[in-house]
Design a protein around this nucleic acid. Structure first.
Length: 125
DNA sequence: AGGATGACCGGAC
DNA sequence: GGTCCGGCCATCC
């Protein structure tokens, strides 16, 4: 982990909280926006171990198959599905979302904005 | 120090 | 559309 910059886990929190309402994002996508390509697993690790202090919309995080692997981390099975449905995201019987329709399509500007923000935090600190 | 683990990914089939 | 498999990398034991 890079001590000179904002913690990777904090970056994950920032990016996750930036996921638009009614959209879902994959772990790899979040890792990419955090400036850490290939750290998809650490994103999942972060969500389950380091982000209890943040208000993360964890139900908007799915894997690349559109499955909700984190359902076990919710209060009861089906809560994540319920939350997604409440945002207008269709969820199939086996708990999968249509990535074609509901994936968060971030722009290059979004990526640059995050990078700038993280570097800014670094310089201020 | 080295192997196992994990809310994973992308390509192959 | 679906499954399987190698690769990925920080943490944990």
């Amino acid at each position: 982990m890079d001590k000179s910059a904002m913690d990777f886990y904090d970056r994950v929190a920032v990016v996750c909280m930036a996921i638009p309402y009614g959209r879902v994002a994959s772990y790899g996508q979040i890792a990419l926006l955090c400036g850490a390509p290939g750290h998809a697993r650490q994103v999942g690790f972060a969500l389950s171990h380091r982000l209890d202090g943040y208000a993360i919309p964890a139900h908007r995080i799915v894997n690349h198959k559109g499955c909700m692997s984190g359902s076990a981390a919710f209060d009861y099975p089906g809560l994540q599905k319920q939350l997604l449905l409440s945002e207008g995201v269709e969820v199939s019987e086996d708990g999968r979302v249509d990535m074609k329709k509901y994936a968060w399509r971030h722009t290059l500007e979004d990526a640059l904005r995050f990078r700038r923000q993280f570097q800014g935090e670094c310089e201020e600190a």
